[in-house]
Amino acid sequence: MGGGEKPKLIIDGKRIDGRGMDDLRPVKVEAGVLNEAEGSAYVEWGGNKVIAGVYGPRECIPKHDANPFKALVKCRYTMSPFASKEEHSRSGPNRRSIEISKVIREVFESLVITELFPMTQIDIFVEVLQAEGGTRVSAITAAAVALADAGIPMKDMVSGVAVGKIEGEIAVDLGREEDNFGESDVPMAISSRNKDILLLQMDGLLTKEEFARAVDKAISASDKLHALQTDAIVRSYEKLESEGLEL
């Protein structure tokens, strides 16, 4: 993080990639991109490429973890060794991805109606194939569509978006440079109908007033993302069979 010279993040009121403060990067959502998984989704969000696959409800392993009253939700978020512009990294979980897996899991624990499937587990696997800042919120947005694609009952849909502060301004959907050189980063996940905040993390410094604006902007952005998610699910029912991934 933060290596190298800090670039100018706002020029003539426009951000580094030409966006206004409330604009999302281009977002593409596809449902049902994998054949083996019971539910799947692909999200291309700026330079992020993320796939999510869902299995379950299926037998809980190890068996002694099974809960007689509800399903367990499990989540594994990992990043490919070639996902970053910098050096090759190792496959599989690390400290960062284990924390992110936990907070994503907690988002879906509050949405999935787990009481319907006692003694089982529901697995959410998210793979970041290409990263450009905002991978955890891309992951949540993809995982929600994958769960819907798998037909798993949920109380509400959810999408994620990070809002942050760059050169004194509150900006929606931070890109890589904005994340690295900005003053603050607040990734959030917002449920579609109730506007509940299901994920909230923050680093950097903000006043209470700035934070409130960041939350309001995240809620507005989540409406746009929800429309894209819904459209992807509708389109998946129009296809006779999955055409696979279009990276």
């Binding site: 994998l34 083996e36 869902v54 594994r76 793979e127």
Partner: peptide, 8 residues
């Protein structure tokens, strides 16, 4: 890597 999303 055999990603766990690739097969049950």
């Amino acid at each position: 890597e055999f990603l766990p999303l690739a097969s049950p």
